[in-house]
Amino acid sequence: MVGSFACGAAFSSFAGEVPKVSVSILPVHSLVESVMEGVGEAELLMDQGSSPHGYSLRPSQVRALNKADLIVWVGEGLETFLEKPLEARKENSKVLELMELKGITLLKNRHSGQWAEEAHDHDEHHDEEHEGHSDHDEHSAHDEKHEDHAQEEDGHEHEDEHVHHEDHEHDHGRFDPHIWLSIENAKVIVSRVGSELVEIDPDNAAVYQSNVEKTLADLDVLKQDLKGQVSGYEKTPYLVFHDAYQYFEKEFSLSAVGSVTIDAERKPGAKRISELRDVIRDRKAECIYQEPQFKPVVVEVLAENLDIKIGELDPLGAKLEAGSQAYKTLMSSLGDNLVSCLTKK
């Protein structure tokens, strides 16, 4: 069992005002909350149960954003609803765009919605990338192996389609924004948020630093627990509702073979449904996973008269209570729900 993220940090008697922090989505908000434990709470901008695709801020959320000292979001590829409000923010606020952070591993978007031929291509490269490093020092290993983004733009091919970001600008449409579903990326986020909070609020530096250390240790345990949880299911094929999970897939060597939709906001047509039914038969997929943010009708149509189960995966934690424990619960639930549906009757 994973211990409580950053619990046990004593409440401090800070001299200055608590930093005002606004965070876009629940999984990232939870990581920020774990760093702020004992000092204050961050504002969650997006309502739970909503999708960042097409979301609109309420006036109260816009006001919170405008007052924030630190704003944390994933980037333009996900929270399009934040682009204009961020342009109008107060001048002295700090914006942390997570897809731009040094140390974040970015994966290229998959456009076809069918990855049967790619399902295991990453295994060999992933093993090579981490060879000789324990889970506790994988982060430092990634830092030492960052690729120059300019080299990527010049045509250098990354066989495993990993890009280790160095705070350079990039084409947001090229990369999958669901970066928080990698625990190694979550560790990078936690460390950087801690550094930013120490800079903004040095009176509470010791609390932030202690919370970062506790959270990083808990994330290492969570990763080991998840590895054990999915052990034995790495080669079991399945389909997801939309392509939100490849960071999770690659970190745990899983075998998703396609997604029901290419664009979560657009229903697949009859031709695509027919193609996906062929994929299910050919690849002997065990499960299709729907998502709570979207109506399940298309998944039910796809599964009709096929020997396949329907499960549910949620990349955002639509039904979770916000707080420092939400990220752990989200990731554990992904493992639980994945295995539950893949388990043969």
Rank of each mutant, 00 (worst) to 15 (best):
S140M: 14
V39E: 03
S253I: 12
E33I: 01
A206K: 12
A186S: 09
E83Q: 14
H156N: 13
E144K: 14
S112C: 07
N185E: 06
L86R: 00
D167H: 15
G75R: 09
L31A: 08
H142Q: 15
H122C: 13
T105G: 08
L86A: 04
C7H: 06
G49D: 10
G335W: 01
E169V: 07
K223F: 07
L197N: 13
Y238K: 08
A270Y: 05
H136K: 13
A322G: 11
S13G: 10
T215K: 04
D135A: 15
D225S: 10
Q151W: 12
P268K: 09
E17I: 13
D203Y: 13
V95K: 07
G113P: 00
G3F: 13
D336F: 11
S22I: 08
V39H: 07
P237T: 06
H111P: 09
E169W: 10
S332V: 12
W115R: 14
K102C: 03
S93R: 05
S51P: 11
L101W: 08
K67N: 15
K94L: 04
P292T: 10
D278F: 00
A264E: 06
G335Q: 03
G54F: 03
L226G: 09
A206D: 15
H149S: 05
T261Q: 10
H120R: 14
L222I: 01
R89G: 05
H122F: 14
L306S: 03
K319V: 09
K328M: 10
G103I: 02
S333M: 10
K187A: 15
E300P: 00
N204W: 07
T215N: 09
K84Y: 14
V207P: 14
C287M: 02
V23D: 00
V297G: 02
L26P: 12
D307P: 03
D47G: 13
E124C: 10
G258D: 03
D121W: 14
Q325V: 04
S112R: 12
E312W: 03
D203E: 15
K94S: 05
E312K: 08
Q325C: 05
S112K: 10
G75E: 00
E41K: 11
W180M: 03
T261H: 10
G155P: 04
A186C: 09
P85Q: 05
Q151Y: 05
F294W: 09
V188D: 01
K67S: 15
Q290L: 14
L306R: 07
F241R: 02
D263Y: 01
T343W: 02
K187C: 11
P177Y: 01
N305C: 04
D137R: 00
E41V: 13
D47S: 07
I183C: 06
H146S: 15
E300V: 01
P27S: 07
I200A: 08
Q290G: 14
L45T: 08
P59Q: 00
V207D: 08
P27T: 02
N211P: 07
A285S: 04
L86Q: 00
